[in-house]
Computed example of a mutant assay.
Amino acid sequence: MALTKKGEFWYGTTSGDTQAELRSYSIANRHEAVRFAASKCDCGCRTFALQSDEEAGVAIRTCTDCGQEHLMGNSADYMDGAAPETHECVCENEVFELVSGVAVHEGTHKVRWYYIACHCVECNLVGVFADWPCEAPDAAAFLAKV
């Protein structure tokens, strides 16, 4: 399915749809995401609850199968004083497939902005639910931790 707009929101069914919405959002934000990664738990599950604190630069995903919490990207470096809040879809569902994207400093692999896009497993809404400026030395290593 391609992205479809219903009212003010976008809907899709694949991780490609979610990535397309993330990329569009990042372009509008003037920090275009150029590298992407889908979240997957060690148990193999691809659905999560998401909490974030954009001011602190922290995101935590919790696996819906095994319950394992995972600090995303470099969130472990910023947990002190963070107050992550749970994300909820407009349909009130709290279970998502997650796609992360990063913008990098021109000519480098250094992360400059982090985006987390969600695909609601209940209603198929896709959107960027969290983003913030971020400094990490290597985009590949950063995205390996999402």
Rank of each mutant, 00 (worst) to 15 (best):
H87K: 09
S100N: 14
V95Y: 02
F129I: 04
A28W: 12
E69G: 12
S52L: 01
H119P: 05
H109T: 11
R112F: 10
A82S: 09
V99K: 04
G81C: 01
K145M: 09
A139Q: 02
N93C: 15
N124W: 05
L71N: 07
A83C: 08
A139M: 08
C91W: 14
N74D: 12
T14W: 11
A2W: 00
K5S: 11
C45L: 04
F96N: 01
H119S: 13
A139G: 05
C134A: 13
M72K: 08
C43D: 03
L22A: 05
A140L: 07
Q68N: 14
T18A: 04
E92T: 06
E21Q: 15
H119L: 15
M79W: 02
C45W: 08
A83F: 00
F36D: 03
E54C: 02
R112Y: 10
V121H: 10
V104G: 02
E135A: 12
W113S: 04
Y114G: 07
C123S: 11
A76N: 13
R112H: 06
H109L: 01
G57K: 06
A20S: 15
T62D: 06
A140W: 08
E69R: 14
Y114N: 10
V146F: 09
N29C: 09
S75R: 03
Q19H: 02
C43E: 03
Q19D: 00
E54S: 03
V128G: 07
I116F: 04
F142P: 13
I116P: 04
C66I: 05
F9G: 12
R112D: 13
F142V: 13
G127E: 09
G107M: 10
F9C: 15
E55R: 15
H87P: 06
C123N: 11
G16I: 05
H105F: 08
D138Y: 01
I60N: 01
A82K: 04
G7Y: 03
V102K: 01
W132V: 00
I27A: 10
N29R: 12
Y25K: 03
A56T: 03
P133Y: 07
Y11A: 01
D80N: 13
V99H: 02
G57A: 07
S15R: 13
H87W: 06
R23W: 06
T62Y: 03
G101A: 09
V95E: 03
A103I: 02
T47C: 00
L71T: 06
V128Q: 02
G44R: 01
V34F: 00
W132H: 11
H109M: 01
W113V: 07
N29Y: 15
L125H: 15
V34S: 13
H109D: 04
A59L: 09
V99M: 08
D53N: 00
C63H: 03
F142W: 05
D138Q: 04
F129A: 06
D17K: 14
E54G: 00
C120Q: 08
E97V: 08
E97A: 12
C118V: 11
R23G: 09
F142A: 12
E92K: 06
